[in-house]
Structures are given as structure tokens and as C-alpha cells.
Design a protein around this nucleic acid. Structure first.
Lengths: 210, 210
DNA sequence: CGAAACCTTGCAGCCGCTGCAAAGATATTG
DNA sequence: CAATATCTTTGCAGCGGCTGCAAGGTTTCG
């Protein structure tokens, strides 16, 4: 699937990577809008025109997304034990996925980037839209409902909202905070029907305040 | 507050309206990207440069947002009876707000527009971001929590997700469907902790399938 | 080796969007 | 009313994102 054969394909991956790397480096500590495509290309040693053969927009070079991940997410959600509720299945899959991602330098860089450049959150949200569709597909398979059923789409949307909110909170949190924990808290809230914290009566009380 | 005095202010509102109207009319039945600012201005009888004195982007002319609404939403959520959970308070406020909006021609046009031009959903989401902040502020006042508390932000985010999902579903639903009902269903799901529908054991079972 | 497929690149061009400064319209003041 | 201050519109010039096209170089394959 990800086997590279031929010199051409190899070079393609290399330039793509060079562009992405150049973009990330240039944006560090600067307003992303002030970084021009021309600049990125100069650093990557490639013509400006070529940039758009690889990415449809500047932001895509900063935060890209692989359709394979979507397929994986869909499958992983669908394959979780049937005893779990859809929300729990998503929580399990995304929880470990995020933990994995945090182990990869690329994603750490990206999250740090988002942290220092809130303007990029828009792009992040766009990417999450893709994840949302993948989640919905997984929930649909799991429940047998249509993938455009209100419940299915809402579950996916709310889960993405949980991730997004957790990451946002992590953005404002002190250094060294573990994002996985925030994500877990967020899902706990969702599961409790968004009952306010601190109350003693209502269901599985989510953890104390952050 | 919205009193217009002076001929100048009146003319300003008029041109703003003309631009907005022109944009909406031109986009009907066409790819919004193919409608140029120049075209819009020609129809509104105004110079292209002037357009950007009113709107920061093309899409802003199609779907704009008033900061007053945000303030209203915040206040309305904060003032709901203390016996209601935050989610219920939001549900009440947004439910009637959306119902009101559906009574206004402008918003009916916009929603129909979104329905036929999915590309505009992005803009709609951006606008909802503003609502989300307003909701969070309301919930914060209501609960006494900080407005960047995870619970507060998540509740706002999930509520917006509910609205967005409901509108999305309405987009695909047959003509004449009542959006208010979809919104209500969506909130019911949230309140139930996103328990899957159809089960007989789990809490306040949300309404049957759509 | 030669043909076919593929990549890169430059070019020309549209469009969104912005700053600036001149000119016009409107409000204000004496 | 007249003079002046204030606000709006407009044209101009320009940057930067993004695209289609066609030329030229490189890799692949028979």
C-alpha cells in the first residue's frame, strides 16, 4: 500500500516532504499569512508553480490529512466490541489514536504550531471534518443505522467537538499538560449528557475541574 | 440602539443592504466562487473598492452576523430559570431563536442558499463559532465556572454541533420538514449522553428515527 | 533505443483583498 | 449662509493565492 517503487515516486515523496518541512519551519514564530508560497518554494528548492501540484492551498502544506487514516478510523470504530456504546467505541479509538499521534514528531510539531498560531485552528477544523465523516461511517456500521441518520451524525459531530475542545483547552493549559487526559474528560462529560460538574446526584460525575 | 439618524447613516445601511441583496441574488443557482465581487458591485451600483469597506470577504456578504445577537444569546442563556441544566437552557434559547429566524425571509433565503450551495457551510460554521462563544459566556455566568472551563466550552461546542447537524440533516430532508423538530431531537440525543436510539433501557429515549 | 507517460517549470492571467490619497457628499459650527 | 471638519466613495497601484496551458526535461517500459 505504502510501498514506493521507482525513482520517480521516491522523488515525489521527497519534494512533498521538503515543501511540508519548509512550510513548517518558516511558519514557526511568524504569522502564517506573512509566509508566502514563493518563500516556501525557495527554501524547498522548487518552483512556485510546483507547490500547487502538491497542495491545493498554503494551509494544506502545514496540516495535511491522509485518506488512509479515515479508512482506518472507520474500521477501528466498527470493530470495537459490540458491548460498547458508539460513544465509548469512538472514545477508545480516538484516545489511542491521539496518544499515538502525540508520539510522532510531526504531530507534536503541528500541535505546537496550532498552539502558537490560533489562525490555523480553522484548518484544523477542516481536517476534523474528514475525521467526522469517518467516525459517522464507523458508527453507522456499528449500529446498522444509515450514515446520515441524525443520531449517527450527531455522535460523530459531538465527538469531534470533544476533541477540538480538548485540544483548544490544552492550547491554553500550562506546558506539560497531557492532552489525552483532557480528551478523556471531555468524553466523560458527553457521556453524562453534559450534566454540570460538581453536582452530586447526576450520573457518572466527570472529574473535578481542570 | 438601532436608531438611524442622519442621512448619511441611512445611506450606509442602504448600500450595505444593496450589496447583500445583490450577492444573494447572484449566487442563487450558481457556484458562489464564480460570482465575482465586481459583478456584485455592478448589480448594487457601487464601486468594487467600496465592497470591502463593508465586508471583509465575499462570503461575509452572503452570511453575516451581528454582534448584538451574540450579546442577546449570552444574556438569554444566563437568565433562564436556574432549575434548568445548562444544556436545557441553551436548548430553550436556541430553539426559539431558530424558530424566530425561520420566520424571517432573510434567514429562510440564507438557509435555502446553504442547502443548495454546500460550499457555504464553511462560512456557516464560522458564524456558529461566534454563537459558540456567546453560549459559553452564558453557561459560564449560569454555573459560575470560568468561561474557558472544559465543561463550559464543551457544552457550547456540543450545542453548536447539534444545531449544525440538525441543519445539515434538514438540508437533506424532504421539503417542508420542520427544522425546529430536528434541533429538538438533536438536543434530546445530547441530553441522553448519546445513547443509541432504539434501545429500551437507556434513559429518556430520544424520538424514533428520522 | 524509441515511444509513452510523467514532472517540473515559466508564463499569462483572474481574482480577492489592501493601503493610500484625491474627490465628493454630508454634518457642524460660527 | 458660509466655512470647515468629518465621513464615504472611488480609482489606482500592488501583492499574493491559485489555475490552465504548453514547452521541455526525465523516468519508465516495451
Amino acid at each position: 500500500m505504502s510501498i514506493i517503487r521507482g525513482r520517480r515516486a521516491h522523488r515525489k515523496l521527497a519534494t512533498r516532504d521538503a515543501l511540508q518541512r519548509a512550510a513548517l519551519e518558516l511558519v514557526r514564530g511568524r504569522d502564517p499569512d506573512s509566509v508566502t508560497v514563493e518563500e516556501i518554494c525557495a527554501r524547498a528548492g522548487v518552483s512556485p508553480r510546483t507547490f500547487f501540484n502538491y497542495f491545493a492551498s498554503k494551509e494544506e502544506a502545514l496540516i495535511d490529512w491522509d485518506a488512509e487514516i479515515d479508512a482506518f478510523v472507520t474500521g477501528a470504530v466498527a470493530r470495537r466490541p459490540a458491548s460498547e456504546s458508539p460513544l465509548r467505541a469512538i472514545r477508545a479509538v480516538l484516545g489511542s489514536a491521539v496518544a499515538d499521534a502525540m508520539g510522532m514528531d510531526l504531530w507534536q510539531d503541528r500541535l505546537e504550531l496550532i498552539r502558537e498560531q490560533p489562525g490555523l485552528i480553522g484548518r484544523f477544523v477542516a481536517v476534523m471534518g474528514s475525521v467526522q465523516r469517518a467516525l459517522a461511517a464507523g458508527v453507522a456500521r456499528r449500529t446498522g443505522l444509515a450514515s446520515d441518520h441524525l443520531y449517527v451524525e450527531l455522535t460523530a459531530a459531538a465527538s469531534v467537538a470533544a476533541i477540538r475542545t480538548a485540544i483548544q483547552a490544552w492550547t491554553d493549559a500550562p506546558d506539560g499538560t497531557d492532552p489525552a487526559r483532557l480528551i478523556d474528560d471531555a468524553f466523560a462529560y458527553l457521556e453524562s449528557g453534559l450534566a454540570p460538574p460538581g453536582g452530586r446526584g447526576s450520573g457518572p460525575a466527570p472529574p473535578g475541574d481542570a
